[in-house]
């Protein structure tokens, strides 16, 4: 390890250039936006229900599959932009519905206090759901990787500093893939819409009120049980949306959710469990850390293999040193 670090200094200085680091930053931020979207759902669930959903990644996986199936079915019968929007809506609807049904069947008894050791129960049921959904999709979709086509191609142009081909956008030396650029844009729109919903609408405020004080919320006429269901459904929907935008970037298999889950855990713990700004910032930080870590890791042989470790190490450290994370409330 030390030897490789020493080796790094004279031999790989070309990596330490402003353009390269800028490129890694841009890539990290782009993927970080999608991480944020995923983590926002998980943090919403935690803030209202007080549980961590271990099936979050599976909603992400299902969102992707719904888009894939939708495009398969309608891509020749509808205009391209319309199929894209339709597919996203379908993915959101399906994941929302699964979330609501699951919450009603399995988590409501817990909220009503009918279950011993609720913490353990919450881990186990959400985890059981993950297990079930993974194998269900394996049975239904088979193990072959699926990939949806891009929602739309970039317009091809060349304006000197900024060039675009079908597959990528080049700004100077920074190259961004079209698939993830589109995914990042949709994620940004969804994040803004979600923030608007949470802070400007009555229902959003009711959700926040419930997360802060259930009794007080109930006093002013908010039904905390319905808020639980809504929060879980919305959380599942956000994960589904994240999957829906990424299915055109990655090949999709029934176990893609495992990585997504662990990324979301890392982010919400880093940002502070239950904190909305925390999950947004945490997502961006993890995106950038992974990108810089892989890009600049001294030993090129191991760089990619350690990609997921960077985030997990931060995660473990945060848990041990400051479990409340960046914006965590005192619990």
């Amino acid at each position: 390890m030390v030897a490789t670090l020493l080796h790094f200094v004279p031999a790989q200085m070309w990596l330490i250039t402003p353009e390269f680091i800028l490129r890694l930053l841009a890539e990290g931020l782009l993927i970080g936006l999608i991480y944020s979207l995923m983590a926002l759902g998980l943090t919403l669930i935690f803030s209202v229900l007080g549980i961590v959903s271990f099936s979050h990644g599976e909603f992400y996986m299902i969102g992707g599959y719904v888009v894939y199936l939708f495009l398969q079915k309608f891509q020749n019968s509808l205009p391209r932009a319309l199929t894209g929007i339709g597919a996203l809506l379908a993915a959101m609807l399906v994941t929302f519905a699964i979330g609501v049904v699951f919450e009603r069947l399995f988590l409501q008894p817990m909220a009503r206090g009918e279950v011993d050791r609720p913490n353990e129960y919450a881990i186990l049921t959400t985890f059981g759901l993950a297990f079930f959904l993974q194998y269900l999709m394996l049975g239904l979709m088979g193990p072959f990787p699926k990939k949806a086509r891009r929602f739309f191609d970039l317009p091809v142009f060349d304006a000197g500093l900024i060039q675009a081909t079908k597959a990528s956008l080049k700004i100077g030396n920074i190259t961004l893939g079209a698939g993830r650029l589109i995914a990042g844009l949709i994620a940004l729109l969804a994040l803004l819409a979600m923030l608007y919903f949470m802070f400007k609408t009555w229902t959003g405020r009711a959700l926040q009120a419930t997360s802060q004080d259930r009794q007080a919320a109930a006093v002013v006429g908010i039904n905390p049980m319905n808020m639980n269901t809504l929060a879980f459904g919305l959380g599942a929907m956000l994960a589904g949306l994240a999957g829906a935008v990424l299915v055109s970037v990655y090949s999709w298999v029934p176990w893609v959710g495992v990585i997504a889950s662990s990324k979301s855990f890392v982010i919400i713990v880093l940002g502070g469990m239950g904190s909305i700004p925390g999950s947004l910032l945490g997502g961006l930080i993890i995106g950038v850390v992974e990108s810089l870590g892989t890009g600049l890791f001294p030993d090129p042989v191991r760089a990619q293999a350690y990609r997921d470790v960077f985030g997990l190490v931060i995660f473990a450290l945060v848990l041990l040193v400051k479990p409340t994370g960046l914006f965590g409330r005192k619990l």
């Binding site: 890539e27 993927i31 990609r307």
Partner: peptide
């Protein structure tokens, strides 16, 4: 040589690195 695990999804940073090298 650049190594990656089977099943890796995200290669952007590795691609950037190869592009830089």
């Amino acid at each position: 040589i650049y190594k990656a695990d089977i099943g890796t999804q995200e290669f952007a940073a590795l691609v950037s690195r190869i592009a830089q090298d």
